[in-house]
Design a protein around this nucleic acid. Structure first.
Length: 469
RNA sequence: GGCCCCAUCGUCUAGUGGUUCAGGACGCCGGCCUCUCACGCCGGUAACACGGGUUCGAAUCCCGUUGGGGUCACCA
């Protein structure tokens, strides 16, 4: 029995959770759930300048909507400075790190000079062997090896070798004593027992530094898996200019979280030809072996199609909660009851989003549908009054308000009037909904219920009687 | 620019040397179904970046070219 998988998602609260970050979260969460492991949430807010409370809340909100829960945390790096300090001191004492008193300006100058020579801009090691004690303004640098290689054994990409000469003595603690990213992550991952790190491939070049840190601290190096980035339609890295990129923006546009998760996972991971996955299926089938290596372009149209499919396939009861906020926004107060479920059932195949579903649901909840002018002019004409009257009376006289009986009534009316089904159905449709487009006549009548149907039919008959010609 | 990663239809992808003149999905274009609109169904469009190898045989392995991306902070 191998050890339990422990993954984590460590967003930095410097903005909303975007699609790329969400996918990383989903991958880690899914892998933990799939392996019955643990999933840890950690907020990386060591950059006090850029981190905000609003961003932290936005991230929680987005994860909550996506249905991603965590077993541990959230930890906040800003509350763990003592731990980092301890590890930094340990590194200094063991000779793996040292105080550097070079000013930022001096470092800038050496970088400029290196660039001018055509070399890689880097710290030149001025303080490396000075063995200095702490003093005001000093930073702590990691003493990188001067030779050799550091190999990242990537689960997804295989071995990636970096020459240690590429690494300079990077800062692990700022002059105010606060930890830098690479140090904080490694210390956190060690102390939180993270053994599987799945993250964006923009972190690949950080990995050798982190591995060196693990080794200097005598800790076991975790498994790394770098997933490709999510690109915008122009194949550049996802950013604000690509439009709605925050996860919650999709919630507000009427997307189903399961569709979002499904979409995000399929962007980079595959299970043969399967496109549609329920959440449970994903947990059952997700693995690291089938994650691709090339970057993927975000395709909103596919997300939309997948969303429609998730809406079609979910039971009405499960959809109601997602739909209600949109109904409310339209001033419709609906309860999650059988009436709503019936309504949803008729709307499922014609709604790509909950926004569309709410639009389509509107006529079910008004007292009297507002007749579309053109629709009324075309179908609620007085010449159709006799059949409409006959139909209305027959429906009112109906004992059992069933689809079978309704169909029978339509048949009789068609026969008497000598008209085809369409000629009768359209006026009825307008009478019931005010529009020429709607769910099927019978399913709609059943969803509306006997009383509403009769009332609307009567209204239409009155309306038609008032028409001339 | 240095280092690193990547490369199958417009997009997401299947494919792990032969059963593939490359399969699925989204989109698009036809058609069917039909009470409107959808759903659904049927069909079509469209790809192995290029050049060298290796091999009896390469989308699959190797090298190069080109293209794209990432990263080089007292950001994460």
């Amino acid at each position: 029995m191998s050890q339990q998988i422990i993954t984590r998602f460590p967003p930095s609260p410097t903005g909303y959770l975007h699609l790329g970050g969400a996918r990383t979260a989903v991958f880690n969460w899914l892998y933990a759930r799939h392996t019955r492991g643990r999933f840890v949430l950690r907020i990386e807010d060591t950059d006090m300048q850029r981190s905000t409370k609003e961003s932290v809340d936005a991230i929680f909100e987005a994860l909550d909507w996506l249905g991603i829960d965590w077993d541990e945390g959230p930890y906040f790096q800003s509350q763990r400075f003592d731990i980092y300090k301890e590890y930094i001191n340990r590194l200094i004492q063991s000779g793996h790190a040292y105080y550097c008193t070079c000013t930022p300006e001096a470092v800038d100058r050496m970088r400029e000079a290196a660039k001018a020579r055509g070399d890689k801009p880097r710290y030149d090691g001025t303080c490396r062997e000075k063995n200095q004690q702490w003093q005001e303004g000093a930073v702590v640098r990691f003493k990188s090896p001067l030779s050799g290689n550091t190999v990242v054994e990537d689960i997804i990409r295989g071995d990636i070798a970096f020459s240690n000469t590429e690494l300079d003595d990077f800062i692990i603690a700022r002059s105010d004593g606060s930890p830098m990213y690479n140090l904080a992550v490694v210390v956190d991952d060690i102390t939180m027992n993270i053994n599987t790190i799945i993250r964006g491939d923009d972190h690949i070049s950080n990995t050798p530094k982190q591995i060196l840190l693990y080794q200097a601290l005598g800790a076991a190096v975790p498994d790394f898996g770098h997933v490709p980035m999510v690109l915008g339609p122009d194949k550049s890295r996802l950013s604000k200019r690509h439009g709605a990129m925050s996860v919650t923006a999709y919630r507000d546009m009427g997307y189903h979280p399961d569709a979002m998760v499904n979409f995000l996972v399929r962007l980079g991971w595959s299970h043969g030809d399967q496109e549609f996955f329920t959440r449970d299926e994903l947990i059952e089938k997700f693995n690291l072996e089938h994650i691709g290596r090339s970057a993927g372009v975000f395709n909103p149209e596919k997300l939309l199609a997948l969303n429609a499919e998730h809406i079609r396939n979910a039971p009405a009861q499960a959809l109601a909660g997602h739909l209600m906020p949109f109904l409310k926004e339209k001033g419709i107060s609906a309860a999650a009851d059988d009436y709503l479920y019936g309504v949803i059932e008729t709307l499922k195949p014609r709604s790509k989003t909950f926004v569309e579903m709410a639009d389509g649901a509107e006529f079910y909840f008004v007292d009297k549908p507002a007749y579309d002018e053109k629709a009324a002019a075309k179908f609620l004409k007085s010449d159709l009054l006799p059949p409409m009257k006959q139909l209305t009376e027959a429906v009112a006289a109906l004992g059992d308000f069933s689809e079978k009986n309704l169909e029978e009534i339509f048949k009789q009316v068609m026969e008497t009037a000598g008209l085809g089904f369409g000629k009768i159905a359209q006026p009825v449709r307008v009478a019931l909904t005010g529009k020429t487009v709607s769910p099927g006549i019978f399913e709609m009548m059943l969803a509306l219920g006997r009383d509403r149907v009769i009332a609307r039919l009567n209204d239409a008959v009155s309306f038609m009687a008032r028409q001339s010609g």
